[in-house]
Design a protein around this nucleic acid. Structure first.
Length: 718
DNA sequence: TTAAGCTTTCTTTTT
DNA sequence: GAAAGCTTAA
């Protein structure tokens, strides 16, 4: 009997024949022009709430309909969530599985590409990705290595160095310039800093690891140094679409330009709103969007100027605010919706009162039928949320905090994941040391000795675990360190055995040593162990360590949600909860009602940002982003007295961004404190509420202050 | 050499 | 008001 041979069966990528999409009906004139435009570079200036996502989705559908294969489209968005959402919507619209499309953040697309071609850059395809914590750990090693002289008191911390190196890459500024401009106090250290930078790069390479910045600039390097690779992707990606272009940096701009090629054939469509550019601090370059037409000569510019989101009242206010910025594309956002209520300006006397106002108003809104999911409280910096958070807790209003420590960045998660990482990439020095230091009796010195003896040589997990067993290592150890070493070797053996099943792998780490460690080290050990069990459950959907790691580091929108969830879970509200979020994290989202709190001079704009060129304008854009999240109701509040840093209270002026608004564009709400016998809401915690939580504050003092009267007035402690 | 305890330094925003 | 880093004791 002849042995069966091979048969090739081609799966052609057919263009969908008839999608039955009525572009003209579904889109307005401006949107339609974008969705159906021809080839060449395009810049789309899309105002807030102008249906940008919708337009992009239809653009992709249009391309597919025109016969562009899914694999020929690259869609780069700011978050993975946005990418998934858009691909999902394209799928619905076209009734096709757009899974062959490439979509994601710059970092995730970069990682995917770099893994394919890692060897061209001297890496292995299983390179580790270092987050900021890992980056700091590695930098610290480089610093100790150099044995920086005794007067190291003023030497920049790993965190500062990381920021410096990151800016160096993302803004293309030489170290000297950056040092002179922003870190003048470290100029004397310039030489050593250079050396640390070199060592850091070398050590990353030795560890087969890339940090977030590497994913961008090595990607660009790959395209620049390998014409074949570049041409291959130029050919593959006939259309490149970039969302949120206002937040890209120089490296990212060059990447898309290199991928797209130059001139007429370069089908590069970038979409963004210059007024929403809020990431300059990490190297985003406002010029990318302003100068796109210059860099790409044949550019056609489109505008989306009809706002479908907000009431005319909110829009007037936001337009009035952004009007104070000089550098921008001129555009006029027209309101589509009918009249609503004027935005509210709410002066509060002290932070707790601001919290009470927000909470009381939220309860009213809920009574009016607004779902808690439709309400958000936004703030400039994370710390500003506290007064509101405590009040919501007290009022028993369910809320969800967005941001803060990401799930993955919590120490206990990183500890466990470091085990997996080490097996995925045995050269990963950061992971190796991290895991070793968990063991009792093993500290920096011993870890160092072990790493020098056996670290970094093996490329493959079995070989690594094999090497651990060698007698020569045990001889290096003090008696004190031996039990810890034994435990480490045992754990790694178990994890190796279970590596095809990440869930089992994680559980075995917990059982064999980490659970004990958590109990001994953290006082909130229960909740941490719970987290880890959740991680194990989450890991069950992956069949390789590698897949899980990639998800955690690059795709993870995973935050410690359940952990951060405060208040009682709503009974009748289901899981509905008010969102507390920084403005940056609220980008791209919208709510029925939005509270922007802590609008104080000295906080918003952030004083640090004001030192930078263009800082005030960037801060105003942040304010603009915050206000434009609101569909129907917008509340701008601020406490006039805030607790000073170390005990004393200070009187503060309201933010300049509020002062500059025309007073016809908002309504001022004057808070009056009433003495109420029964709490407005009957809740479990309500009884104790009045008694122990109201601060010492003279109720006879008029809570509404006039700015000029109080400016500069000292306020002695509380 | 480790680990606890004490001091010091922050706090802008995050893929 | 916390986390990181340094000092000191075991």
């Amino acid at each position: 009997m002849p042995t069966p041979g091979r048969r090739r069966f081609a799966l052609p990528q057919r263009a969908p024949v008839n999608l039955e999409i009525d572009f003209e009906k579904d889109l307005n004139g401006q949107q339609l022009a974008v969705a159906t435009c021809g080839d060449g570079p395009k810049l789309v200036i899309a105002g807030a709430g102008s249906g940008k996502t919708r337009t992009l989705t239809y653009r992709v559908a249009y391309l597919l309909q025109r016969g562009v294969p899914p694999a020929g489209i690259l869609l780069v968005t700011f978050t993975n969530k946005a990418a998934r959402e858009m691909l999902g919507r394209v799928g619905q619209l076209t009734r096709l599985e757009p899974y062959r499309m490439w979509g994601g953040t710059f970092h995730s697309v970069g990682a995917r590409l770099l893994r394919r071609h890692a060897e061209l850059l001297g890496y292995n395809e299983n390179f580790s990705i270092l987050d900021e914590g890992d980056q700091r750990d590695l930098l610290r090693l480089c610093i100790t290595d150099l044995d920086v002289s005794v007067e190291r008191r003023r030497f920049p911390s790993p965190k500062v160095l990381a920021g410096l190196f990151s800016l160096q890459i993302n803004t293309r500024q030489p170290l000297e310039d950056l040092l002179a401009e922003r870190y003048a106090r470290f100029v004397d250290w310039s030489e050593i800093i250079h050396e640390i930078a070199e060592r850091y790069v070398a050590r990353k390479r030795a560890a087969n690891a890339m940090d977030y910045d590497d994913l961008l600039h090595r990607w660009l390097q790959l395209l620049q140094e390998n014409d074949e690779v570049r041409d291959r992707y130029r050919e593959q990606f006939a259309h490149i679409l970039v969302d949120e272009y206002q937040d890209t940096n120089i490296v990212q701009a060059e990447i898309v330009e290199a991928m797209a090629g130059q001139g007429q054939g370069a089908n590069l469509m970038v979409v963004g709103d210059d007024s929403q550019s809020i990431y300059a601090f990490r190297g985003a370059n406002y010029d990318n969007i302003l100068r796109f037409p210059e860099r790409n000569p044949a550019t056609e510019v489109f505008r989306l100027e009809t706002n479908y989101r907000s009431t005319p009242q909110i829009l007037d206010l936001t337009n009035a605010s952004i009007q104070h910025n000089e550098v921008k594309y001129e555009k006029t956002l027209r309101a589509e919706r009918t009249d609503g209520m004027p935005p509210a300006m709410v002066p509060c006397s002290y932070p707790q009162q601001e919290g009470v106002f927000v909470a009381e108003r939220i309860l009213q809104l809920r009574d009016e039928g607004v779902d808690l999911d439709e309400i958000a409280v936004l703030y400039r910096a994370h710390a500003h949320r506290l007064s509101v958070e405590t009040t919501l807790l007290r009022y028993d209003i369910p809320y969800e905090v967005r941001g803060g420590l990401r799930f993955f960045e919590q120490a206990h998660i990183k500890d466990v994941v470091a085990h997996l990482r080490l097996l995925d990439n045995p050269r990963d020095e950061v992971a190796f040391r991290r895991v070793l230091l968990l063991q009792p009796g093993i500290g920096n010195v011993t870890a160092d000795r072990i790493w020098k003896a056996i670290g970094g040589h093996t490329v493959d997990a079995e070989a690594l675990v094999g090497a651990l067993d060698e007698k020569s290592v045990v001889d290096l150890l003090s008696a004190k360190a031996r039990p810890g070493w034994g435990s480490f070797v045992g754990t790694m053996g178990e994890v190796l055995a279970a590596r095809a099943d990440p869930q089992t792998a994680i559980l075995s780490i917990l059982e064999s040593c980490y659970e004990d460690y958590v109990v001994a080290k953290f006082d909130n050990s229960e909740s941490r162990i719970e987290d880890l069990q959740q991680l194990a459950v989450f890991a069950a959907q992956y069949d390789s360590l590698h897949g899980l790691l990639e998800e955690l580091l690059l795709l993870g929108e995973l935050y410690g949600r359940d952990v951060d969830r405060g208040g009682r879970r709503g009974d009748d509200d289901g899981d509905s909860a008010v969102v507390l979020s920084t403005i940056h994290q609220a980008k791209g989202l919208e709510w029925h009602s939005v509270f922007i709190i802590h609008l104080l001079e000295g906080f918003f704009p952030s004083p640090r940002a004001l030192d930078e060129a263009g800082g005030e304008e960037e801060e105003r854009r942040i304010f603009y982003v915050a206000m434009t999240r609101a569909r129907d109701e917008l509340y701008l509040s601020y406490p006039i007295i805030r607790p000073g840093g170390y005990g004393a209270s200070v009187v503060q002026r309201r933010s300049r961004f509020l002062q500059e608004l025309p007073d016809t564009s908002y309504e001022t709400w004057q808070l009056e404190e009433e003495v109420v016998e029964t709490p407005a809401v009957a809740t479990a915690s309500g009884a104790g509420r009045e008694a122990d939580t109201e601060p010492d504050f003279d109720p006879n003092v008029d809570p509404v202050w006039d700015d000029d009267e109080v400016l500069g007035e000292p306020w002695a402690g509380d």
